[in-house]
Write a protein that binds this DNA or RNA. Structure first.
Lengths: 222, 222
DNA sequence: TTTTTATCGAGATGTTTTTCTCGATATATC
DNA sequence: GATATATCGAGAAAAACATCTCGATAAAAA
């Protein structure tokens, strides 16, 4: 029997439910329904129900779910109520941007140190987080029991840095480099594929233009 | 008949094939096979074949595909050989990071101007791109026929800015805000859901820990 | 109190996506 | 020139995922 039988598609939707629920709560709404969530986020209401079911939250006929309960259930299910310390490697523009995000703590991740190969960047503090020479990562990661590594280095350095992370006991990597890392299967890798996103965008735009200019088919032609 | 019958999953994989092929070319390799690409990127080789088929590229038995041809086919299919001008709104940390990325031009997108609501940020140049007050966006976007908008503003401003973009004739939005935009169906929206990514990461890590500490099930309990 | 209604949750059905299977073919080897 | 082999591409099978259907139920309305 599989340890993790929750569809990954569900895992990807839960955070967006979560943020929507936070906004509902801010507005003072106390209860909501699968139908409301689905309509706001463009997901079929039965799908929303199935997704929420995996968190263990129960709704009541005619009233739906209490917003507070749902938020708590999702947090618990995603383990977002337990913050893990993370190291970030690559204190360039993107790395700096991530260091500036306060919101990640709400998503279970606190960046406690950043690393960079360039001595020019090391030694300073960025957004209150110290930037250290990358050579110091292995020892520190081991001693601090760091579980999460965030990879914001250029593509050609990503594999080597990832291996260093894994060697230092890091178990999960949030990878922003446009590369598929080759690591032991036990390591959890989550890619933020910016270019995939751009591929979809660009293709859809091209198809739309082609359709608008009269041609019905989207193929590349005979 | 649907205009666009290519699976979105395929569109998302093509960019990663593309980057892998660029690296192969750099190393001087002239031909490759679906099996090689699949092994490197963790995709089944028959899946790679189906994906490449949509670009129109043909392989030859025993030799595979010419790397150059494949690169060109993917570029053409994604329309990455035609660069579109884009406006970015939200010149904070993340926006600045994106402005610094040279690689997007290779993916069909050139950021020609940035906008920000804060007068403190407007007027300067960031990474060689001028930052303007957001009020100037509609007029400029219309006059320059801007098709792509990049949204890197805080969540609570995202909807309003998106509407401004659409009103100014922008047809596709690359959205980094953790919110589902409510826009006319004709508008192409591509979300970069950083938190979805973190949700998957966090959940998998939690499941792994639970599994390691003896318990077999990953549920939230009875 | 009875009826109506909004919502849930479980199971059946349908669709999309991925993987498996197998015959065809171009190159390389004998 | 004949045989072997790596690779392709098309179609079948399997798996994953989304949608539809329907009975149950708690609250609200009559």
């Amino acid at each position: 029997m599989r340890v993790d039988s929750v569809p990954e598609a569900t895992l990807r939707r839960l955070p967006s439910y979560y943020h929507y629920l936070l906004r509902l709560r801010e507005k003072g709404q106390e209860a909501t329904s699968a139908a409301q969530i689905g309509a706001a986020l463009g997901v079929h209401h039965t799908q929303v129900r199935k997704d929420l079911a995996v968190t263990g939250s129960q709704g009541r006929p005619k009233v739906g779910h209490r917003v507070d309960d749902l938020i708590a259930s999702i947090e618990e299910f995603l383990n977002w109520n337990n913050v893990s310390d993370a190291f970030l490697v690559g204190a360039g523009h993107l790395g700096t941007a991530l260091l500036g995000y306060a919101g990640f703590e709400r998503a279970g991740v606190r960046i406690v140190a950043a690393f960079d190969a360039s001595p020019r960047r090391a030694g300073r503090k960025v957004q209150g987080v110290p930037v250290l020479p990358v050579e110091k990562l292995p020892d520190l990661a081991r001693r601090m029991h760091i579980a999460i590594g965030i990879l914001t280095v250029p593509a050609d350095e990503a594999q080597a840095v990832a291996e260093m992370m894994v060697g230092a006991g890091i178990q999960a990597i949030w990878n922003f480099a446009p590369i598929v890392l080759d690591l032991p299967e036990a390591v959890i890798v989550e890619d933020v594929a910016l270019y995939s996103s751009l591929g979809v965008l660009s293709r859809k735009l091209a198809v739309r233009r082609k359709a608008a200019s009269g041609k019905g088919s989207a193929g590349t032609g005979p």
